[in-house]
Amino acid sequence: MSDASVRFAVVGADHPHVFEIVHGLTTAGAIAAAHAPEGGLVEAYVGWQTESEERPADDIIADDSIALVVLAGVPSQRAAVAVAALRAGKHVLSDKPGVTTSDQLDQIRSAIAHRNGRSWTVLFSERFGNRAINAAVESARAGTIGRVVHVIGAGPHLLSAEHRPDWFWDDTSTGGILVDIGSHQADQFLAIATGADGTPGDVRHASVGNVACPDRPAMQDIGAMTLVANGVVGDHRVDYLTADGLGTWGDVRLTIVGSDGVIEARANIDVAGQPGGEHLIVVDADGTRRVDVSHRRIDWAELLLADLADAGERLMTQSHVIAVCDLVLHAQHAASRWGE
């Protein structure tokens, strides 16, 4: 299977990440062959990918010419499509979260066990789509700040309530705030602490709450979790509390503390600092410096297509994807109410 021969189809277009995912794949040489007429963003998708053919999801899954199924529908609906596609002999690339319940993850595990070389990948776009975060993780894993002892991740988001679909407000649809956006932080933590080799992590503490959406009492607008793996402690907070005046959708940060220094990635904005996004700052024995990451290539799609060609694991291991999903599901299940 050559990169250019990979034909893919989109099943479910409810999250804007579908545009990022498809752009990455087509830029890397894959072909947007078809889409299912499902999701609130389908009309915009069709207007963008004009050559994509509209077909029912069942027909897409049964089509042997389509090698990859892309999922960006309502989060709680992704796993069932993934299982069907895997059992039909297709690769699956899902927006995060890939699953919203432990039962769904068990079903994915079963389908993977019989997949005959087919992969289930969840794209954790904070790490793979942001040069600063990607470089920070890579640098820490290379030992540039000594032994990593502490990881601090923050994933604040702008609520933009007027633009949110109905399913957004229902934690049975999203899996809850730690399962949903917290999966980015769990991915980064495990990638740093374990090298993304599939080693599981443990949840020491977790909490979720609603502190600013009184009209949506079931909504979780803040969550935190303390994770431990391979002797590294990770403290993470995700929320929808970003003020409108920030100028971007969130002040996402990753701080990695090592025995010989600190690495900080400021993904989207450097508050009261340098303009633009993707900032990487290093403090070590040589001083404090900013590292230019603008030259780094965002190559997740190229790596993924290469993996599809030879059953490789260049982008990430299958066991890492499972470990991330399992970790946030445990955190969500164990979470106490915020402030208790």
Rank of each mutant, 00 (worst) to 15 (best):
D187E: 10
P165D: 05
D58K: 07
L280K: 04
L305W: 02
I21G: 01
G287V: 14
D310K: 09
D286G: 15
G146Y: 00
G247D: 09
T100Y: 01
A186Y: 01
F19Y: 04
K90C: 11
A154E: 15
A62L: 01
D286H: 13
V122T: 09
G201D: 05
A212E: 07
A33W: 03
T26H: 02
G195Q: 10
H23F: 08
G250P: 13
D270N: 05
H91A: 09
G117V: 08
Q77W: 01
V151E: 01
K96D: 06
T100R: 07
H91K: 04
D14C: 14
A218P: 01
S294V: 01
V328G: 00
V262C: 10
F124E: 11
H114C: 12
P165C: 10
A331S: 02
L123V: 13
D14E: 11
L41S: 02
A267D: 06
E138N: 07
A323R: 05
G29L: 03
T50R: 14
R289C: 00
H163Q: 11
D95W: 03
F124P: 04
A306E: 13
Q104C: 06
G153C: 08
W338V: 13
L246C: 11
C213Y: 10
F189K: 00
A30M: 03
I192W: 03
I133C: 14
D171A: 11
R127H: 15
F128G: 05
R87T: 15
G40V: 07
Q185N: 10
D64E: 12
H333C: 09
S2V: 14
N134C: 06
A34S: 15
D14L: 11
W249L: 08
N230P: 09
V208K: 00
A323H: 03
V122S: 02
G201I: 00
Q332N: 08
S139R: 07
A191V: 14
V211C: 02
P75E: 03
V257C: 07
P37T: 13
G258N: 07
F8W: 06
I269H: 05
N130E: 13
A212H: 06
P75H: 04
G39V: 02
V257I: 11
Q188R: 08
H23I: 04
V228E: 14
T26Q: 09
A36L: 01
G312H: 06
T144V: 15
V46K: 12
